[in-house]
C-alpha cells in the first residue's frame, strides 16, 4: 500500500513544540483525521487530538492543514499533495493545550455574555407561534453553525492582533445576528455589538466565510447586516435628527 508522511506539530505550549514526521499507509477515500488515528494507533498513542462525529457535523477536529484552517474529518487526502509531507498544526488563535488540542474555552465564555433569546408572547392559546418558512430560512443558515471556531481562528483581529477582550469574532457576531433576525426575538443587541463586542474591528476581509466548513455566508448575511443596523441607528445623520426631533 502507498504511504504518506504527516508532519505533525507536537508539544504542550507555543514555546515548546516541534514537528515530527510520521509515515502511515494510506488507502482510498482517507481523510486527514484517519491518518491522525493511524498515527495514534501505530506510532504515538499519546498524540492529542479532538474528534467526535467524523462527519463534519460536530466541529471538534479543527486544525490547520498545510496552513489552512480546516476540519480534519472533511479534508480528503486525495485533495492534498502527498509527494511532500502533510503539515498538521493546531489552531493558532488559541492557546495550545497539547499537540493538536487548543484551549477554546474563551468562546464559551463569550457566548454566555450575549443576551439570551427572548421570545414575544405566544401567538396561540396552546403556547405556540406561527412563523413563515421564508422568515425562518435566513436564521436557519446561521444555526447550521457547528461551532468549530475555524472562523475565529482565521480572523486577523483575533489571530494577529489578539483582541480577544474587545472583539467577539465572526462566530459570535453571527450568533447575535441569529438572535436579532429570529422571528420571535424581542431583545435588542445593537448597542452591545457596537460598544462591547467590537463589531467595528471587522473590516470585511471575508476570511471567515472562506474557511467555514458549513459554507455559511458569515460576512454577507450576518456581519454586514449587523453593521448596517448599527450604522442606521447610531451614525445616520437623518436618523439622528429624526430621533432628536421626535424624542424616540
Amino acid at each position: 500500500m502507498p504511504q504518506a508522511t504527516f508532519r505533525i506539530s507536537r508539544g504542550d505550549s507555543a514555546t515548546h513544540s516541534e514537528f515530527k514526521d510520521y509515515a502511515v499507509e494510506i488507502s482510498e477515500g482517507m481523510v486527514v483525521l484517519d491518518a491522525v488515528h493511524l498515527v495514534q494507533m501505530v506510532h504515538a498513542p499519546d498524540l492529542a487530538a479532538r474528534w467526535n462525529c467524523k462527519a463534519g457535523k460536530c466541529g471538534s477536529c479543527s486544525a490547520e492543514i498545510n496552513g489552512m484552517p480546516r476540519l480534519m474529518c472533511m479534508t480528503r487526502l486525495s485533495d492534498l499533495d502527498l509527494s511532500v509531507p502533510v503539515k498538521i498544526e493546531p489552531m493558532k488563535t488559541f492557546r495550545r493545550i497539547k499537540d493538536l488540542v487548543t484551549d477554546v474555552s474563551w468562546n464559551f465564555r463569550v457566548k454566555e455574555k450575549i443576551k439570551k433569546f427572548k421570545p414575544r408572547p405566544a401567538d396561540n392559546a396552546d403556547g405556540t407561534w406561527n412563523m413563515a418558512q421564508r422568515d425562518v430560512d435566513r436564521v436557519q443558515e446561521f444555526r447550521k453553525c457547528i461551532e468549530c471556531f475555524l472562523c475565529q481562528d482565521v480572523c486577523h483581529v483575533l489571530r494577529d492582533h489578539q483582541k480577544h477582550d474587545e472583539f467577539i469574532g465572526p462566530r459570535f457576531i453571527m450568533w447575535n445576528a441569529a438572535l436579532e433576525m429570529h422571528p420571535l426575538d424581542t431583545d435588542d443587541r445593537l448597542k452591545e455589538l457596537k460598544d462591547d463586542n467590537g463589531l467595528g474591528y471587522c473590516n470585511i476581509t471575508k476570511c471567515c466565510t472562506k474557511v467555514c466548513p458549513e459554507h455559511i455566508a458569515i460576512t454577507d448575511n450576518a456581519i454586514i447586516p449587523m453593521k448596517e443596523r448599527v450604522v442606521d441607528r447610531y451614525y445616520d445623520p437623518l436618523g439622528w435628527l429624526w430621533s432628536k426631533a421626535t424624542g424616540t
Partner: peptide
Amino acid sequence: RELEKWGALFDRTKDG
C-alpha cells in the same frame, strides 16, 4: 413546543 420557546427554529408548514 418547549424547544421553540427556547429558540429552536423548526421547518414550517404552509400555515406557519
